[in-house]
Design a protein around this nucleic acid. Structure first.
Length: 590
RNA sequence: GCGCCCUUAGCUCAGCGGAUAGAGCAGCCGCCUUCUAAGCGGCAGGUCGCAGGUUCGAUUCCUGCAGGGCGCGCCA
């Protein structure tokens, strides 16, 4: 249970019993942990928020409410403080009951219902299928995947989706590059400088060329009058080359994602959407609403593009929905812009039942957010909401020295190389040690360091230590006494040390953390929370070094030991639960 | 020129409209015959970029300004 919403219900009920003026807005009544733990276990601002509309003095109202709250059995003290806060202290027994709850519920502890089973679509990665993924893609992949798991834990029905950009000029350029590799594989005398369309020069297309040769032999090429192999006209090879190249690239990308433990439910094809006529239909909807017109845009002020010329374009009135300028839907050759396809795609998501959508993009797409949100609002009449999470840049370092990234110089660092080097767990955790909209420095040397400087190892170590105690306990006691059910009925009232109770309080905050992180779409909060839990646990552990009576395993005190094992087990449960949400494997030993 | 993001301790960063703003690192002082010292305790360190506004209350919301990053009509 989220104990804060539990007590909020109690506070609201007591307020209603106070015969205050009718029609008071209670929505701003908050029940939260006090910022300073010395103030108590739970604080509410109810009196301060309601005093004015109720025509009362905040502290007077607080006293009346506090008087009623003191009668709650779990409440040992209700003090009015500062401008009108009410600070509640809860009985140790209440916390012991939370501990038992954690053990009974196990890994599902923290599961919330705020999602109410509503469908939410999280679209992430969506990297162009033109080559291996880089580190920036990896950040978005981890964020999206962790957010999806978090929303699922919070009670949403989550679909993890990848928008496959398999239409447009880039994949055609990709096909040309693959075709070049194909001709090379056939032994054609052809060099890169004479092949202007050879844009994607990475080695990863060499096997694609080989595969095309194996499948098609020389059928996609022809021999000139002199018997030498040359290319055929575009329309005689484009489709098969493009399709098999995209398939090969997606296999590559999916393999990279699999390394990170990421698997999408749906791969939506841009080409399929365009070819199905969905774009025309979506734009007809907008047109019917008078949101499409042909007009001319002002040139950007300040820095005028070299080849600027005024020309009329088909535009979407995104300015009616908060965008800065109206946005083009058609290219000059009459084909749709990427934006037009994306409009149809988001309408498609809405039609599939998603009123809540999250897109995870790189920061370089920041200028695209307003128009996409404008389109979603326009298409759905405001029924659907699109949240866009922008991931700022990841900069690679090694021992503090920047790792230069240059495709041309061949020092392009792929996601695969990084994950091979540091491992899935380290990569995923580190990607969540910053808010998504904060730039992130990733230092190879630092993230594999095994010290408290490295939050991944710090948290893993806490879990491993907890498991180690439980293993040790299993050597001397019957297995039946160590099951979660058995530990839940241990004499938990024996846990009275302030450090033990502080740890239980923090563990009991997990359900609230899940809810607030899910509401804010901020999975990084889990990584920070786990560090706090780990710190409290390591601290408690070391108190046992200073004072042997505080150790978890005591030869002469079986009842107390049992209670402490329950606490250790709860730490393992919550840490494992949190790590699982962010996709990091809890370590059994280190 | 315009838009978006960022600005919190020497450094790297958390911080949900709430009270005396928190971690880690670096610095200083301590803790290992015994559950993992890959750890822990303590000390010191702040005009929350600047200026206004809203509010009982602003690091948090709004406006303006400054500095940094990203982007800016037929690329995706």
């Amino acid at each position: 249970m989220n104990l804060f919403s539990h007590f909020r219900d109690i506070v609201v009920a007591e307020l209603q019993a106070l015969d205050l003026p009718a029609g008071l807005d209670l929505s701003r009544v908050a029940v939260e942990p006090p910022r300073d733990p010395a103030h108590g276990d739970i604080a509410t601002n109810a009196a301060m928020v309601l005093a004015k509309p109720a025509g009362l003095q905040p502290r007077a109202l607080a006293e009346r409410l506090a008087e009623r709250l003191r009668r709650q059995s779990a409440v040992t003290a209700a003090e009015v403080a500062g401008p009108g806060f009410i600070n509640l202290r809860l009985a140790d027994g209440f916390w012991h009951a939370r501990l038992a709850e954690i053990l009974r519920i196990g890994p599902a502890y923290g599961d919330a219902r705020i999602g109410g089973g509503r469908k939410v679509n999280v679209e992430y990665v969506s990297a162009n299928p033109t080559g291996p993924m880089h580190v920036g893609h990896g950040r978005g992949a981890v964020l999206g995947d962790a957010l999806a798991a978090l929303l699922a834990k919070a009670g949403y029905e989550v679909t993890r989706e990848y928008y496959l950009n398999d239409a447009g000029a880039q994949v055609e350029a990709l096909a040309w590059s693959a075709y070049f590799r194909y001709l090379q594989a056939l032994g054609a005398e052809i060099d890169e400088t004479s092949f202007a369309a050879f844009q994607y020069q990475g080695d990863y297309l060499v096997p694609v060329g080989e595969a095309l040769k194996a499948t098609y032999g020389e059928h996609l090429a022809e021999r000139g009058a002199d018997g030498r192999l040359v290319g055929k006209p575009l329309d005689e090879w484009l489709q098969p080359v493009r399709d098999s190249t995209i398939a090969a690239m997606m296999a590559l990308i999916r393999a990279d994602l699999a390394m990170l433990g990421i698997e999408h439910d749906v791969f939506a094809s841009e080409r399929a959407i365009v070819e199905s006529g969905a774009v025309d239909r979506a734009l007809q909807t907008l047109d019917a609403a008078g949101l499409i017109y042909v007009g001319t845009l002002e040139p950007p002020k300040g820095k005028l593009p070299e080849d600027w010329e005024e020309r009329p374009q088909t535009l979407f009135r995104s300015t009616q929905f908060g965008d800065d300028v109206d946005r083009p839907l058609k290219k000059s050759d009459g084909s749709w812009t990427y934006f037009a396809g994306d409009i149809a795609y988001h309408l498609d998501k809405y039609r599939r039942g998603f009123n809540e959508m999250v897109d995870v993009w790189g920061a370089d797409h920041g200028g695209y957010v307003k128009r996409m949100q404008a389109a979603v609002t326009a298409l759905t009449g405001g029924a659907a909401r699109l949240d866009v999470k922008l991931c700022q840049l990841v900069s690679l370092f090694d021992k503090g020295v920047p790792v230069r990234m240059s495709k041309r110089a061949g020092t392009f660092v792929t996601l695969r190389e990084v994950v091979d080097e540091v491992g899935k767990d380290v990569f995923r955790f580190v990607m969540l040690t910053r808010r998504n909209d904060q730039a992130l420095d990733f230092d190879f040397a630092k993230v594999v360091e095994q010290s408290k400087d490295n939050p991944v190892f710090y948290v893993q170590y806490a879990h491993a230590r907890a498991r180690s105690v439980l293993r040790r306990a299993a050597e001397t006691r019957p297995a039946a006494t160590l099951t979660p059910e058995s530990l839940a009925s241990a004499p938990l009232a024996r846990l009275t040390d302030p450090a033990e109770l502080a740890l239980i309080r923090h563990l009991a905050g997990w359900p609230r953390l899940v809810e607030s992180a899910a509401e804010a779409h901020e999975p990084h909060r889990i990584a920070f929370y786990l560090q706090e839990v780990a710190a409290l646990f390591h601290g408690l552990w070391n108190k046992g070094n200073d004072d042997a009576s505080l150790r978890f395993l005591l030869d002469n005190a079986p009842a107390l030991t049992e209670a402490r094992l329950a606490l250790v087990q709860a730490v393992a449960v919550v840490v494992a639960s949190g790590l699982t949400v962010i996709g990091v494997t809890p370590a059994e030993e280190m």
